Measured scan of single mutants.
Amino acid sequence: GKMTGIVKWFNADKGFGFITPDDGSKDVFVHFSAIQNDGYKSSDEGQKVSFTIESGAKGPAAGNVTSL
């Protein structure tokens, strides 16, 4: 299901970062391709987002990331 969290950091040059879930669980990796914004796929530190957890090649990753 959908979770909410805060972007801990995001490196636009490398195209990835981490989200800290609101439920206190482990930080989740986020790749720019998962960000659902139109246009520039980046996110700012401290941005509140909703997301799903997908199982990626390197473990859990955020999917369907949407700014709230």
Rank of each mutant, 00 (worst) to 15 (best):
Val28Asp: 01
Glu54Ala: 07
Gly5Ala: 01
Asn11Ala: 06
Asp23Thr: 04
Asn37Val: 11
Lys14Thr: 06
Phe51Asp: 01
Phe51Cys: 05
Tyr40His: 10
Lys8Asp: 04
Gln36His: 10
Trp9Gly: 03
Gly24Trp: 04
Ile35Asn: 03
Asp23Trp: 04
Thr4Met: 06
Lys26Cys: 11
Thr52Ile: 11
Asp22His: 05
Asp13Ser: 13
Leu68Ile: 13
Ala61Lys: 14
Ser33Trp: 07
Gly1His: 13
Glu54Ile: 15
Glu54Lys: 09
Trp9Val: 03
Gly56Asn: 10
Phe29Trp: 07
Val7Pro: 01
Gly1Met: 12
Ser67Leu: 15
Thr52Glu: 06
Glu45Ala: 15
Pro60Trp: 08
Ile53Phe: 06
Asp27Asn: 06
Ser50Trp: 08
Asp22Pro: 00
Thr52Tyr: 09
Lys14Phe: 09
Phe10Thr: 02
Thr66Cys: 10
Ile35Val: 07
Phe32Cys: 12
Glu45Trp: 15
Asp38His: 12
Ala34Leu: 01
Ala34Tyr: 05
Lys2Glu: 08
Glu54Ser: 10
Thr20His: 06
Asp44Ile: 15
Ser42Asn: 11
Ile53Trp: 07
Glu54Val: 14
Gly39Glu: 09
Gly59Glu: 02
Gln47Trp: 15
Lys26Asn: 10
Val49His: 00
Glu45Val: 15
Ala62Glu: 02
Lys8Met: 04
Lys2Phe: 12
Asn37Cys: 15
Ile19Glu: 00
Gly15Leu: 04
Ser55Cys: 15
Leu68Arg: 03
Gln47Ile: 11
Val65Lys: 01
Ile35Pro: 02
Pro60Phe: 10
Ala57Trp: 13
Thr4Tyr: 08
Asp27Pro: 06
Asp22Val: 05
Phe51Thr: 02
Ala57Ile: 12
Phe16Lys: 00
Asn11Gly: 04
Trp9Cys: 10
Phe29Gly: 00
Ala57Cys: 14
Asp22Thr: 07
Thr20Glu: 07
Ser50Cys: 13
Asn11Phe: 04
Ile35Lys: 01
Asp44Trp: 15
Thr66Ser: 09
Asn64Val: 06
Phe10Pro: 04
Asp13Met: 12
Phe51Glu: 02
Ser33Ile: 05
Thr20Asp: 01
Asp13Pro: 02
Asp27Arg: 03
Ile19Lys: 00
Lys2Met: 12
Ile35Leu: 13
Thr66Glu: 10
Ala57Lys: 12
Glu45Pro: 15
Asp13Ile: 13
Gly59Ile: 03
Phe29Leu: 03
Met3Phe: 11
Gly15Pro: 01
Ile53Glu: 01
Asn11Lys: 05
Ser25Gln: 06
Phe10His: 02
Thr20Asn: 02
Gly5Val: 05
Thr20Trp: 05
Ser43Gly: 11
Ala57His: 12
His31Cys: 10
Gly56Leu: 06
Gln36Val: 13
Ala57Gln: 10
Phe51His: 01
Val28Gln: 00
Ala57Asn: 10
Gly15Tyr: 04
Phe16Met: 03
Asp23Ile: 05
His31Leu: 07
Asn37Arg: 10
Asp38Gln: 11
Gly39Asn: 10
Val65Gly: 01
Glu45Ser: 15
Ser67Gly: 09
Ala34Arg: 03
Lys41Ala: 10
Val49Glu: 01
Lys14Leu: 14
Ser67Cys: 13
Leu68Val: 11
Phe29Met: 03
His31Ser: 07
Lys2Arg: 12
Glu45Gln: 15
Asp27Trp: 06
Asp13Phe: 12
Gly46Arg: 08
Thr4Pro: 02
Ile35Met: 13
Phe18Trp: 10
Asp44His: 15
Thr66Ile: 12
Ser33Glu: 05
Lys14Ala: 08
Glu54Tyr: 14
Lys2Tyr: 13
Met3Asn: 06
Phe16Thr: 01
